[in-house]
């Protein structure tokens, strides 16, 4: 008697779970909704970066960042304001909508007094001493449609918010090597279509980083994350980004997104 009951319970549970999964949005649709979310044509903001190593040594950077869409092309620039040893450093990216077209990136180092072209295939490298990769910085609140294949694996909760769990894997080993990730699992708030938490696994399959997006508030009608915390499980290093003075669509000049502006400190 027990066996038929067990099979019955198993079958009911199995089909119930399957039907729930079947009701969940597909990964690509979630990604599309994330990327369709309004993030403003342009934004300016102050950013405080706190980097803490495994021994507790902390470094702090203050930056001012701008991002603006030129049609489908996204341009981002970050100017370092403090401390003294890094003040004047600036980073500019042109992110093109064509998946087969590499980004163009430039870095200005005040000690060199020259704007240097840097290779976009550095995108898996850590960004200027933080736990973010250049690609993480570039994507901000978006996800890459071209680099990953994704599925929805279930539901969860982060900081009290319901979210869908989306698992993404690079489309091939070359992309995985470039990005430095073999798998990304993201918890997406399905009421505002923002990522609340991301987990990344390195190319060996070990859990590498956990990123938590916090203090998400509406600014000028646009959902905006104000705190991002990254724990690097491999190194014990921790990065915390705190955004302030966020302003959308406030007449940001096109000239800020130029190499000349990098040299001038905007």
């Amino acid at each position: 008697m027990r066996t038929p009951v067990s099979i019955f319970i198993f079958l009911v549970t199995f089909f119930s779970a399957s039907s729930v999964l079947a009701e969940l949005l597909p990964g690509d649709e979630i990604a599309r909704r994330i990327n369709a979310r309004d993030e403003g044509e342009a934004v300016s903001r102050l950013l405080l970066m706190e980097m803490t190593d495994s021994r507790g040594k902390q470094r702090i950077r203050k930056t001012k960042g701008y991002r603006k869409y030129f049609g489908d092309e996204k341009r981002t620039v970050i100017f370092y304001l403090a401390p003294k040893n890094i003040k004047g450093t600036a980073f500019l990216t042109y992110d093109y909508p064509q998946p087969d077209k590499s980004d163009d990136q430039w870095l200005y180092l005040p000690a060199m007094r020259k704007v240097r072209r840097i290779s976009a295939s550095d995108r898996g490298d850590y960004f200027l001493g933080t736990d973010f990769s250049y690609e993480d910085i570039k994507l901000e609140t978006r996800v890459s449609m071209a680099d990953y294949q994704r599925i929805t694996t279930g539901e969860s909760e982060v900081d009290g918010f319901h979210c869908l769990i989306m698992e993404s894997k690079p489309v091939n080993v070359e992309i995985a090597a470039e990005l430095g990730y073999s798998k990304v699992e993201q918890c997406i708030d399905d009421t505002i279509w923002m990522v609340r938490q991301s987990k990344m696994w390195d190319t060996q399959g070990n859990l590498l980083k956990t990123i938590n997006f916090k203090d998400i508030r509406g600014i000028q009608g646009i959902w905006t994350q104000h705190v991002i915390e990254v724990d690097n499980h491999k190194t014990g290093h921790h990065t915390r980004f705190v955004f302030s003075d966020v302003q959308y669509n406030q007449g940001i000049s096109d000239q800020i997104f130029t190499k000349n502006a990098l040299k001038r400190g905007q």
């Binding site: 590499s102 240097r116 072209r117 840097i118 290779s119 976009a120 295939s121």
Partner: peptide
């Protein structure tokens, strides 16, 4: 002149 190609920058 300068340009980037994959892992390379030519200048």
């Amino acid at each position: 002149f300068s340009n980037a190609f994959a892992d390379w920058v030519i200048r």
